[in-house]
């Protein structure tokens, strides 16, 4: 590569903050599967790379009082294989399992995936419906930000230069909860999602109290959830008619960009109903 930069791999978070505060043009390196590509293409020109991989506690999945805590440096393959990401969380491990390809999944991290915030990012819609929050650490402070506030646009988050994502936290789901992740890809081996969707149902067995969440990727700049559509589908017996209603509401709200090369806006709109129908059908065990 021609782009020149320095490289630093701190052992502690404080060392990382120190390095970041000294260099305004520093970039954090996690798995590198986006960063290295972007450096090579000239899309970004950092003067310092801060590699966090030597800070071991930044990776791994654990269960704490706060919920399921995922270190940002946890790789996709680690997510896919985690014994803690079962039940309500299984859609996240499934999304991780089909992201990129095996070698990419050995490097790509969940932190990198959400910070890169590609509109079709594999983990974004599962994390959105799971109501994940992101722990952002600065030099002397720590804050918890809901994921839907954290991601602000394609390749954009609220993260400022000196900050580091230190955890991704998934709430507990004491009630029965099930989710399903779907995507359209052009080839089966390795492709970025053309359009994707996560559906989550809390209380799928209790018609009155069931709560449906659905997030769509690539139809808007950030993962899109429609409050109105979710209301249509929640708290009552779901029928094909309701699904069609919900899909039509979503279609009236979204605005897929016409410049995407992976799928046309028409196709993405068309897939909304299909995803809703398929996701709910898989979760509820009903054919619509």
């Amino acid at each position: 590569m021609f782009s020149r930069f320095d490289y630093y791999a701190p052992q502690t978070l404080n060392d990382a903050f120190a390095a970041l505060s000294k260099n305004g043009n520093a970039r954090i390196l996690a798995g590198g599967t986006d960063l290295v590509v972007n450096i090579r293409s000239g899309k970004i020109k950092p003067s310092l790379i801060v590699d966090l991989k030597k800070i071991k506690w930044l990776s791994g999945v654990t269960k704490t009082d706060r919920g399921i805590e995922i270190g940002p440096l946890t790789t996709m393959n680690e997510l896919a294989e985690s014994s803690l990401l079962k039940g309500p969380y299984s859609l996240l491990s499934y999304a991780a399992k089909i992201m990129g390809c095996y070698e990419i999944r050995n490097r790509a991290t969940v932190g990198g995936n959400i910070i890169n915030a590609s509109p079709g990012a594999e983990t974004l819609t599962p994390l959105t419906v799971l109501h994940a929050s992101v722990e952002v650490s600065g030099n002397n402070n720590k804050k918890l930000i809901p994921l839907n506030k954290f991601v602000t646009g394609p390749n954009n988050t609220v993260l400022s230069g000196g900050e580091i994502v230190t955890k991704i936290i998934l709430p507990f789901y004491p009630q029965l909860t099930a989710g399903y992740y779907m995507r359209r890809a052009r080839v089966k081996g390795m492709d970025l999602a053309s359009v994707n969707c996560s559906v989550l149902v809390v209380n799928p067995n209790n018609i009155e109290k069931c709560q449906v969440r659905a997030a769509f990727g690539t139809v808007m700049p950030t993962p899109y959830r429609s409050q109105k559509a979710e209301e249509i589908l929640s708290g009552k017996k779901i029928t094909l008619d309701l699904i069609k209603q919900a899909a039509s509401v979503i279609n009236s709200e979204i605005n897929p960009r016409a410049t995407s090369l992976r799928a046309t806006p028409e196709y993405k709109r068309f897939m909304v109903e299909y995803f809703l129908k398929t996701g709910l059908s898989k979760i509820l065990g009903v054919t619509f």
Binding site: R186, V187, K188, G189, M190, D191
Partner: peptide, 8 residues
């Protein structure tokens, strides 16, 4: 530009 993969 997507050429077929082994899964296809």
């Amino acid at each position: 530009y997507l050429i077929p993969t082994s899964s296809d």
